[in-house]
Amino acid sequence: MAFHKINITINGGLEQVVVPSNMTLMQMLRENLALTGTKNGCSAGECGACTVLLNGEPVNSCMVLAVECDGTNIVTVEGLAGDQQLDPVQEAIIQSGGVQCGFCTPGILISARALLDRNPDPAEEEIREALVGNLCRCTGYVRIIESVKAAAKV
C-alpha cells in the first residue's frame, strides 16, 4: 500500500504528514499528531464524536481519507479557543451544564461553531437539526441546545 506525503494546516499551524492510503483524517489526527481531543465513537460517520472543521465545514473525520486533505485547513476542538479565551460555544456549554462524560463534547462544539458561523442567530429547530449528527447519551441534549442559544447571544 502506498504512502502519501501531505501538507495540511491544523489549528493554524502547517504540518507535513506521511499517511497510508487507508488512513482516515481521524486516525491521522489522533495517531500521528496526538490531537486526541477528536474522539472515535463509531468509525462509521454516525455518532459525530470525531467531527472537525475541514475548510470551515464540519465533517466526520472518520469518513474522510487523510490523503484527501492535502492542502486543506483543519480545525479540531484543540483549536477552538484563542490564547487565553475560550470560544463562546465552549464557555456557554460549561455555564449551561451541557458537559457530562465529555466524550461527545468536542464534536458537539465543532458542530455548534460551524452552525453559528453560517447562521449567527439560529432558531431552536435549527440548533436541533445542526446537532442531529452528534449523539450524546448522557445529557439528553437539553443543556447542549441551551448552550448554543446562549453562545449565539455572545
Binding site: 486526541t36 481531543g37 484543540e78 479557543a81 475560550l86 458537559v99
Partner: peptide, 23 residues
C-alpha cells in the same frame, strides 16, 4: 449550590484524557 463542574474546562478544550488517548 450549583457549582460549575470541576472537569468542564478540560473536557471542552479536548485536554481531558480518556483511555484511548494515552500515548
Amino acid at each position: 449550590e450549583s457549582k460549575i463542574r470541576i472537569d468542564a474546562r478540560e473536557k471542552v478544550t479536548g485536554a481531558a484524557i480518556y483511555a484511548d488517548d494515552i500515548q
